[in-house]
Simulated assay, not measured.
Amino acid sequence: MIKIIESTNKHQMLPFIMTIFVYYAELYLFLLDYISSFFFCNILALLVILWPFYLLGIRKTNMLKHIFLFSFIASFLLLIYEVPLISMEGNRYVVSSYHPPEELVKSSGIYVLGVNTTEVLLEEGLEEQDFLELNSHSMIFDINQVTNIHRYANKTIALIQLIGINLEVDYVHQMSMNVNAYLSTGNIAIDEFLSRNNVNGNSAGLALVLSSLIEQEEVKNAKTIGVTGAISKTGEVIEIGQVKEKVLSANKINLPYIILPLGNLEEANEVVESLNLPIEVIGVQTVSDAIQKINELNEEIKGESE
């Protein structure tokens, strides 16, 4: 008798087990890009409709009614949680393109190396090659289609932020804090740069510090140098991404030198050598190293003039 009751209880749990199984099976297929967010949410909506019909249309025990009700609530909550994915659907691509190196402090010779990264929505039927042809006037480094994993991560972060929890690192704020902590003094050009809406990441940190030191005449520089690299509050230079793109940006305006984190030196040199670019790449570990390298480059000028 006990075994019969246990077996019956297990069968009564089937609606809830089915709901969870369908959800995770769908989620797995969605993250692998096998199904769209429309299909994902439509199946959840079907479960939301299905369980009330069973609840109202079939004679059951109170316990089984509770299981169907619980399955309905679970399906409904999962649907509400996943519905925002539909707004992220579409033929979306992440595009990395050329951003002109910028000398923030006039006559400093220090050029901030950056890359434009934007998400674009293409019309249905258009593909990567079509986009490249339509934007042939622009220098596009890379274009990648947005995956469902990317969509799901963005949706989850956005929902968590709605309840006041911020999981994203504000790299621009972090860069601002580190630059100001190292310099101890403000700079109008740097403050203006940090307040821009289109600034992303923290790779301009080293260039901002060097530009400010040159403006304050703590460092003298007569060379034109492309600079990229994040920094800590104590002046350690931290590795960055999109190295190839930044090297190509420097080459586009004929910058003869690039200073970047030592950890990115090998990758940058591979780009320079493979494309035979007329650029000398210099790797540094600290702001002090960068200052020393700038002094050495300027000593070469003195030696040549003598």
Rank of each mutant, 00 (worst) to 15 (best):
residue 2 I to N: 10
residue 7 S to E: 11
residue 8 T to I: 14
residue 9 N to H: 09
residue 10 K to Y: 12
residue 11 H to T: 11
residue 12 Q to K: 12
residue 16 F to N: 08
residue 18 M to E: 07
residue 20 I to M: 13
residue 27 L to I: 05
residue 28 Y to N: 10
residue 28 Y to R: 10
residue 30 F to Q: 03
residue 34 Y to D: 00
residue 35 I to F: 00
residue 35 I to M: 01
residue 38 F to W: 09
residue 39 F to G: 00
residue 49 I to V: 13
residue 50 L to G: 00
residue 50 L to T: 04
residue 53 F to R: 02
residue 53 F to S: 05
residue 56 L to T: 08
residue 56 L to H: 06
residue 56 L to N: 09
residue 57 G to S: 06
residue 57 G to H: 05
residue 58 I to S: 09
residue 61 T to R: 10
residue 61 T to I: 04
residue 62 N to C: 00
residue 63 M to G: 00
residue 63 M to F: 15
residue 64 L to I: 02
residue 66 H to V: 10
residue 66 H to R: 12
residue 66 H to E: 07
residue 66 H to Q: 09
residue 70 F to C: 07
residue 72 F to N: 00
residue 74 A to C: 11
residue 75 S to M: 03
residue 77 L to I: 12
residue 78 L to F: 09
residue 78 L to A: 08
residue 80 I to G: 03
residue 80 I to P: 00
residue 81 Y to S: 11
residue 82 E to H: 14
residue 88 M to N: 05
residue 88 M to G: 03
residue 89 E to L: 02
residue 93 Y to K: 04
residue 93 Y to D: 04
residue 94 V to C: 04
residue 101 P to A: 09
residue 101 P to E: 05
residue 102 E to S: 12
residue 102 E to I: 14
residue 102 E to Y: 11
residue 102 E to H: 10
residue 102 E to C: 08
residue 102 E to M: 13
residue 105 V to A: 08
residue 107 S to Q: 13
residue 107 S to I: 02
residue 108 S to C: 09
residue 109 G to I: 04
residue 113 L to P: 02
residue 114 G to I: 00
residue 115 V to W: 01
residue 116 N to M: 06
residue 117 T to W: 00
residue 118 T to N: 12
residue 119 E to P: 00
residue 121 L to F: 12
residue 125 G to N: 08
residue 126 L to T: 02
residue 128 E to T: 11
residue 131 F to R: 01
residue 132 L to E: 09
residue 133 E to F: 13
residue 134 L to A: 15
residue 140 I to P: 01
residue 140 I to M: 07
residue 143 I to S: 05
residue 143 I to D: 01
residue 143 I to R: 01
residue 144 N to F: 07
residue 144 N to K: 15
residue 149 I to W: 13
residue 151 R to S: 10
residue 153 A to I: 15
residue 154 N to R: 15
residue 158 A to N: 10
residue 158 A to R: 08
residue 160 I to M: 06
residue 160 I to D: 05
residue 162 L to M: 13
residue 162 L to Y: 06
residue 163 I to M: 12
residue 163 I to R: 06
residue 168 E to K: 12
residue 176 S to M: 09
residue 178 N to V: 02
residue 178 N to R: 14
residue 179 V to T: 02
residue 184 S to F: 08
residue 187 N to S: 14
residue 188 I to D: 14
residue 189 A to W: 08
residue 191 D to A: 14
residue 192 E to G: 06
residue 194 L to A: 06
residue 201 G to D: 11
residue 202 N to Y: 07
residue 212 S to P: 02
residue 214 I to Q: 00
residue 217 E to R: 13
residue 218 E to W: 10
residue 219 V to G: 01
residue 221 N to R: 05
residue 221 N to W: 07
residue 227 V to T: 04
residue 230 A to L: 04
residue 234 T to A: 05
residue 239 E to Q: 08
residue 242 Q to V: 05
residue 246 K to W: 12
residue 248 L to R: 06
residue 248 L to F: 15
residue 250 A to D: 05
residue 254 N to R: 12
residue 258 I to E: 03
residue 260 L to I: 04
residue 262 L to I: 09
residue 263 G to W: 04
residue 263 G to S: 06
residue 266 E to H: 11
residue 268 A to G: 07
residue 268 A to Q: 04
residue 270 E to S: 15
residue 274 S to T: 14
residue 275 L to K: 14
residue 276 N to Q: 13
residue 277 L to I: 05
residue 280 E to H: 09
residue 280 E to T: 14
residue 281 V to N: 03
residue 289 D to S: 05
residue 290 A to L: 06
residue 291 I to A: 03
residue 292 Q to T: 14
residue 292 Q to Y: 13
residue 295 N to C: 10
residue 295 N to Y: 13
residue 306 E to Q: 11
